[in-house]
Design a binder for these strands. Structure first.
Length: 920
RNA sequence: AGAACCGUAGCUCAGGGGUAGAGCACUACCUUGACACGGUAGGGGUCAGGGGUUCAAAUCCCCUCGGUUCUACCA
């Protein structure tokens, strides 16, 4: 990366409004084409954040825009603060989502993946990836992220594929990855298994049916039914053909005598045993249930405990099988149609005793929205408990900090209850599992010493007819490696891995805490022996204006590109950071974007003001001192490095030509620099932008610029330098948040090197000036009072009013009369004849002649109210100070503060009483 | 069934033991040589309700009422 750019041609004046469309493309292109390349050999401390890789399919949505804004803000801050900052970009192949998208396209084109064949299909997906991935890249570029594009990665690129294989081989030979027959979640639409996390639970209205199962011995009876029957409850009557038992609780007196006996499945002649198992809840339903091991996870476990067979009656398409277990009339029926048919038949046969409304939580495939079907299948699994234990240990030791902290508990709870992870997917798009089978079903997996060697070409197995597992890994089985696979792992000696791993912060939404964060934690500890990041910063979800989640199906999504077009990217970044507080969800609010746009415009015009005034004043500057050169560089744009604003500030401190306003703003800038830096260090990005926003607008623009006008008009070098230095510091402080406009304006102020590579302002205790702060506060109070009086007297802002200043701090105001007169548009006079309208403020009283259209009764009422308020405050403070407990226990500063308040309010009260005395 | 978060001005939200804040909206005045995407002066809140801890509670604890969400194999 070079650190120069083509400066904006110096026009006499910037336009009066900031136009993002002329500024943004230039900088976005620069940051894309000359990326912020992190140097693995530098001596600086690393600061690494890996992007939560967006799915190659689909667009950047607001969640991504939020993620990447927060990441970029931290990265830009740390880069300026002297770290070797690496923002590592990339994308995820998103197995099932992408395959579903491409298959849908094929369907629209009248074909399908099976007709195409695996290789042709994959070619299509890669085409789509190229197109879609390019779009995401453009969107991130538009956002202005300072990513290191030379390190961009993709979960299916060569290096990452090697990492995935290394992971699997290691887990397999360590006995942690295994193949087994389990009940898994099947998505009949996409024809693959899913992990628990890929299923959305949704409560739907359904029915619960009470069925009568006839006992083998008609002389017996369950106490929940008539003679010769036992009643059971189910919500899935279509699965009764796969029943293997009826279960009751072992302590349930109603059924004890029946355990070991048999009952007949309705609509069939098949008998199943009645068994006792703790899993049964006595109080629920009718106390007994059917056990269908092949079609229900709980039943599967019960079946395992009791050694029951587990035949299946639903096939992979979600239809009843043509198995002999299923009566002919139901064979081949779709599962929901089958339910209706079975219910009807049960009803007709008198076996259906009752059906009542029942809310059932059903599992929907996250991607296809189709109800998942529990099926029994042979799949690959990874044992999670050993990994979870390592993470829990690391969390315990504080090796990973979560912010907000409350998520640490959520993180732990999930890890403590973790189950084995089904990692195989019956998809084509993804990392094909490197496992081979011989004709007898024996498993072959490459050796850890030579993981890249496929078993079917391994000389040792040449005599065998090996067939590769057609399945691929779950997408998250590659995303879990992201913080280190992107840095060269499994090559742990690589420069990048050595320098940038482990990473510092992970920024993402709390919604993927389990999916992604926890799995990276486990992979990090399990494969690299350390935490993959030291801080997890979780932000809330970006919701629509009504507070609902945005989703394609609801059609309530907001396209970030439209917001960029409408408000400008800086304004959007302002809004994102301003809105992000403490991991709370964010409800979309257009007003925040307007606020950002207005703020950008304010900054633009403040700089415009500075350029105009400095431009007017510079020709008269003839000195050859550092400070003069610093101010002159605004127009002269030196080829070498410009004199630094930090040095200028340090020099300014000792100058005698500084005005009170200059001293005040320098002191305030210093305090704000410290505050914003501390907030960023604590990852409280929202607080930092708020601090900077109010300082820039309320203090710098509203007070300092106004107060500096008289001194600028008389060409005061100290004020010119202060204006420039403070403005440049503000631009630096805001740069991480609003990179475009700050880069542009910094260039306009005479800098050739882009602001992004300048250093972050540092707090300097020597710049603190309590006296100036105190005095300027009095001046502000005087100005506010004078303005208020003008308003009360019905005067226009431009009408000049004679006012007199009295009070403890009248001297300070008098010394700065030019400033007060200029800002408040008043004339300061020493004495006023006759009755006056007066306003009493802290330290000063402002008096104005009583003329014009003031409503005296109303005015006096207000002043009386004011007096009462002061009285109340004084009494309150006195009350506290006369309270023994307060004096004994409150900290000294608080006590002093109360004493000070009594003094200040007392003085104000005295002055106000004097003022009111003239009106009797 | 557990758990978490939220309830502060008309709206959207900060603040999180020590004098109630912002943006927008509202009222009045102002095109004052940076900015009307602006300026100035104003109005508006018993910080959901109740109890407790404390010298001091919007802030900490408990309960209640509303709202949201996440976990969980109740047929």
């Amino acid at each position: 990366m070079t650190d120069t750019h083509t400066p904006t041609p110096q026009t006499p004046e910037l336009p009066t409004q900031f136009d993002p469309t002329t500024t943004e493309p230039k900088w976005a292109a620069k940051w894309r084409n000359e990326p912020f390349r992190a140097d693995a050999t530098s001596g600086k401390d690393p600061f690494t954040i890996v992007i939560p890789p967006p799915n190659v399919t689909g667009n950047l949505h607001l969640g991504h825009a939020l993620d990447n804004t927060l990441i970029d803000t931290l990265i830009r801050y740390k880069r300026m603060a002297g770290f070797e900052a690496l923002y590592l970009p990339g994308m995820d192949h998103a197995g099932i989502s992408t395959q579903v998208v491409v298959e849908r396209q094929l369907k629209d084109a009248g074909t399908n993946r099976h007709d195409l064949g695996r290789e042709n299909f994959l070619e299509k997906v890669w085409d789509w990836k190229a197109k879609s991935g390019g779009m995401i890249l453009d969107q991130l570029t538009r956002l202005g992220v300072s990513a290191d594009w030379t390190r961009e990665r993709f979960t299916m690129d060569e290096g990452l594929s090697r990492a995935v294989r290394a992971q699997f081989v290691k887990l397999y030979h360590g006995g942690l990855a295994y193949r087994g027959e389990r009940i898994v979640n099947w998505d009949p639409a996409s024809q693959t298994t899913l992990s628990e996390l890929e299923i959305d639970r949704e409560v739907r209205k359904g029915k619960m049916y009470t069925l009568s199962y006839k006992l083998e011995n008609p002389a017996e009876a369950a106490s929940n039914g008539d003679a010769g029957e036992i009643r059971i409850a189910t919500v899935r009557p279509e699965t009764i053909f796969a029943d293997q038992a009826i279960a009751v609780h072992p302590n349930d007196e109603r059924f004890k005598h029946l355990v070991g006996k048999k009952a007949r499945i309705p609509l069939t002649e098949r008998l199943v045993p009645i068994i006792a198992d703790e899993a049964v809840e006595m109080d629920f339903g009718v106390g007994a249930l059917k056990i269908t091991p092949a079609h229900d996870p709980t039943d599967f476990e019960v079946g395992e405990r009791h050694g029951l067979p587990r035949p299946s009656v639903i096939d992979l398409d979600g239809n009843l099988t043509t198995d002999e277990l299923v009566p002919a009339e139901f064979q081949g029926l779709e599962r929901f149609a089958a339910r209706k048919a079975v219910v009807k038949a049960l009803e007709e046969g008198g076996d259906l005793l009752e059906q009542k409304d029942h809310d059932t939580a059903i599992g929907l495939s996250e991607r296809t929205k189709v109800p998942v079907e529990p099926i029994i299948s042979e799949q690959w699994f990874v044992q999670m408990k050993p990994f979870a234990a390592q993470v829990l240990d690391g969390l315990e030791k504080g090796e990973i900090r979560l912010t907000p902290e409350r998520y640490a508990k959520v993180n732990r709870d999930w890890l403590e209850n973790i189950r084995d992870w089904n990692i195989s997917r019956q998809l084509w798009w993804g990392h094909q599992i490197p496992a081979w089978y011989d004709e007898e079903g024996n498993i072959y997996v490459p050796d850890p010493e030579n993981p890249e060697l496929d078993c079917d070409v391994d000389p040792r197995y040449r005599h065998l007819n090996l067939r590769r597992d057609p399945d691929v890994f779950d997408t998250w089985f590659s995303s879990n490696l992201w913080p280190f696979s992107t840095l060269g792992w499994p090559d742990t000696d690589s420069e990048d891995f050595q320098k940038f791993y482990p990473t510092q912060v992970l920024v993402t939404g709390y919604d993927i805490l389990f999916f992604w964060v926890a799995r990276m934690q486990m992979a990090g500890y399990g494969l690299t022996g350390q935490a993959p990041f030291s801080t997890v910063m979780l932000h809330g979800l970006y919701l629509d204006a009504k507070g609902q989640k945005m989703s394609k199906s609801k059609g309530n999504g907001i396209d970030p590109l439209e917001l960029f077009d409408q408000y400008g990217v800086d304004a959007c970044r302002f809004a994102f950071t301003f809105l992000s507080t403490g991991g709370q969800d964010i409800k979309h609010d257009a007003r925040r974007f307007e606020q950002g746009r207005n703020f950008a415009n304010k900054l633009w015009n403040a700089t415009r003001f500075a350029l105009m005034r400095l431009g007017e004043g510079i020709p008269a500057l003839t000195g050859d001192d550092d400070l003069t050169r610093y101010v002159r560089s605004t127009l002269e744009k030196p080829d070498g490095a410009s004199p630094r604003s930090r040095d200028a500030l340090a020099q300014l401190k000792t100058r005698s030509d500084l005005t009170l306003a200059d001293r005040w703003i320098i002191s305030r800038l210093n305090a704000v620099t410290a505050e914003a830096s501390a907030q960023l260090d604590a990852f409280d990005i929202g607080a930092a932008i708020r601090t900077l926003y109010s300082f820039t607008w309320d203090e710098f623009c509203d007070w300092y610029i106004e107060a500096a006008k008289p001194a600028l008009s008389s060409g005061n070098l100290g004020t010119m330098a202060t204006l420039k230095a403070v403005l440049e510091h503000i631009l630096k402080l805001l740069h991480p948040f609003m990179p475009f406009i700050t880069s542009e304006l910094y260039g306009a102020l005479g800098h050739r090197r882009q602001i992004a590579v300048h250093s972050w302002p540092k707090e300097d205790a020597a710049l603190h000036d309590a006296e100036a702060t105190h005095a300027f506060d009095a001046l502000r109070a005087a100005v506010a009072a004078a303005r208020s009086l003008k308003s009360e007297l019905g005067l226009s802002p431009q009408d000049r009013l004679n006012v007199a200043v009295e009070g403890e701090l009248a001297g300070v105001v008098g010394e700065n009369s030019r400033v007060v007169e200029s800002i408040a548009k008043v004339n300061l006079v020493t004495l006023l004849e006759g009755r006056t309208l007066s306003l009493v403020e802290q330290g000063v009283t402002i008096r104005a002649p009583l003329e014009g259209t003031v409503d005296m009764a109303d005015w006096l009422k207000k002043q009386q109210k004011r007096l009462q308020e002061l009285d109340k405050q004084i009494k309150q403070a006195e009350g506290k100070l006369s309270n023994e407990g307060f004096v004994a226990r409150a900290p000294a500063e608080v006590i002093e503060e109360e004493q000070r308040r009594i003094k200040d309010f007392g003085a104000q009260k005295e002055r106000l009483e004097g003022v009111l005395a003239q009106f009797g």
